[in-house]
Structures are given as structure tokens and as C-alpha cells.
Simulated scan of single mutants.
Amino acid sequence: MSQVEGSWGGYHPQKDRLRGEIWQRLKQEGVAVGDPVDRIPNFVGAGEAAVRLASLDVWQQAKTVKCNPDSPQIPVRLRALQEGKRLYMAVPRLTDARCFVELTAEGLQEKQIPLEQVAIAHHALSYGRLVSFAQMQPIDLAVVGCVAVARNGGRTGKGAGFADLELAMLRMLGLVQATTPIVTTVHPLQIVADERLPMLPHDWLLNWVVTAQDAIAISPTRPQPTGLDWDTIRPEQYQRIPILQQLRRASISGFGSKDFPGN
């Protein structure tokens, strides 16, 4: 595997190639902030895209927002906190069984912690509160990081599958619904033709793609996944993500977010 294809690849050659092309294109056009390879790429205009996202009704109506921990969504996380929304940020790589950090402006301001500081992922981990599923509120809007997106709702991240796993777990436990808006902020160069992004049944579709210049509303062509598909979870995901092991053990008896073992 060449470096430009990223260390998370190897499971879907078409998506691997596409990610490599996007990373290279962002670098060549000078719109990447930092090295985009192997990352959800930060981009010129990320702040403006967050402002455009905040103008949408789906954002303004949301009281609780889930957001990915990547750099291009720092302005999104900051905006959520500034507007008094409850923010859940996924723990990078889901390495803790309590795999979300809860952040509220009220709690942070009581501790005199600047919101601008906590919008950065490693500070969020230091100052936020790790929460179990039982401690979480239902999510009104989910923000995901993307390397490439399509106007039919198709998306791909780095190739590790974290976003799909997070949403599937939250759906399984009733914290995300079939109608919960799924949005992303990207650079226009990350938007590709629909046929370039094949989507599998366990892949979650976007409802909005937001750039600094535009907000693209999408009507998904199929229902969102109803939960985890154990047949598609890779062995290394199961081994490295503690919450998957707990969910698997609990799934045979049936549970909800309020009676999940360990909560």
C-alpha cells in the first residue's frame, strides 16, 4: 500500500484509491491545512463552512450534537459550545468503553476553561466528562468527518469505519433515530460523482454536505442502518474497541441505553 492510500485502507480498493486522490488533490491545490494524508483533512474554509452549517434549521433546532474529534470540525464543536448546545465528541479510535466525551458551555465556564481551547480534541478529553450510553441524552444532529462525499449521501472517512460504528451503536441504543440528520463540513474538492462512492448496507448516508460556499440537502435513497451488523465488524475492530465486546456480550439478552451492562 502506498503512503497516499493511508494506513487504514485495504478493505475497499475503490475507496482507497479515491481517498488517495482526494488527499493528493487537496495538497496540489493548496487548500489542505497541514498534511491531509491518513486524516480527515483539515481545509481552507473550515470556519466558513461551520458558519454556513450553523445557519441551517437542522442545526438551530438541535440541542444536543454529536461531533467527530477531527481538526476540520474544530469550528463546528466551538460553535456548538458557544450556542449552548450539549456536545458529545467521540473518543478518538473509541479506545474507552465510555466512548464519548460530554461537553457543555455551562460546565466549562464554571471551571473558567476557554471554549476555544476545549474545541480542540485533546483538550476536550482532558476537560470533558467521559460518559456511558446511559448518561447520554438523545442526539438531535450528528456531524461526521469525511475524506470524500457524494451528492447522493455517500461518504467515506479514513477507512477505519469509526463513524459508521458510532452511529450504529447509538442507533442500537435509541440515542440516534432513523430521522436524525447526519451532516458534514468539507471542501468542495472533496465532493465526487455518485458512482465513485459505492455504499454498503452498513454505511450511513449523509443528509447534508456543507462547504464554505454551499449547503447541499440530500434525500437518502435507502433507510439508514438499524444498528450494528456483526457480520461486517472486522476482527481488529472487535479486539481494539472495548465497547463492541460489551455490546456483543449483552446483545443476546436485549437491552436499551438505560440498562446496558456497566452503566
Rank of each mutant, 00 (worst) to 15 (best):
G174W: 11
L244C: 06
P225V: 12
M89H: 05
G107Q: 04
I218C: 05
A134G: 15
L115S: 04
S7P: 06
A105T: 03
T95V: 15
P138V: 06
R25I: 01
F162G: 00
L78S: 02
T95R: 13
C99P: 09
L26A: 00
V143Y: 03
V147M: 06
V149Q: 02
V144T: 15
N152G: 02
L78G: 01
Q109H: 03
L103Q: 09
I241Q: 06
S55M: 10
A160K: 10
Q135W: 08
K111P: 13
T232P: 08
K66C: 11
V76P: 07
G107K: 00
L125R: 10
P223V: 09
E83M: 08
F162I: 11
V37T: 09
W59I: 04
Q3E: 09
G254P: 03
A54S: 15
S2C: 15
A97M: 11
G10S: 06
E106W: 09
Q14F: 08
A134Y: 15
V37Y: 00
I40E: 05
G30T: 00
T180W: 07
D259K: 01
C99S: 15
T156C: 08
R79G: 06
E21I: 04
K158W: 03
R98D: 10
A148R: 02
S251Y: 00
T156F: 05
M89E: 09
V149N: 01
G128I: 05
D70S: 03
D16I: 11
Q137C: 11
M172A: 11
S257M: 12
I252L: 11
V31Q: 00
S2F: 10
G47R: 01
G30V: 00
S257F: 10
V65W: 00
P72D: 04
P225G: 09
P41R: 06
V76G: 01
S132G: 12
L103S: 06
V4L: 07
P13V: 08
A62I: 08
S253W: 13
S219P: 12
A250D: 03
L244F: 09
A50T: 05
R39H: 14
T226M: 14
R93S: 14
Y11D: 12
F43T: 02
A148S: 04
T232F: 06
S251C: 08
A215M: 02
L205W: 04
E195H: 12
M136T: 09
A119L: 05
A46M: 10
A46P: 12
S126E: 13
G10V: 03
Q190R: 00
H202Q: 15
D38A: 12
F162K: 00
P225F: 03
I40Q: 01
M199G: 09
M1S: 13
G84S: 03
L244E: 05
G154C: 07
V149E: 02
L167M: 11
S7Q: 14
S126A: 11
P72H: 05
D38W: 08
G227C: 04
F133H: 11
S132R: 14
D140K: 12
I74R: 06
W208P: 14
R196K: 13
P181S: 05
Y127Q: 07
I113K: 00
L130P: 01
D96F: 06
T95W: 11
Q190S: 00
Q14P: 06
P181W: 05
F260Y: 04
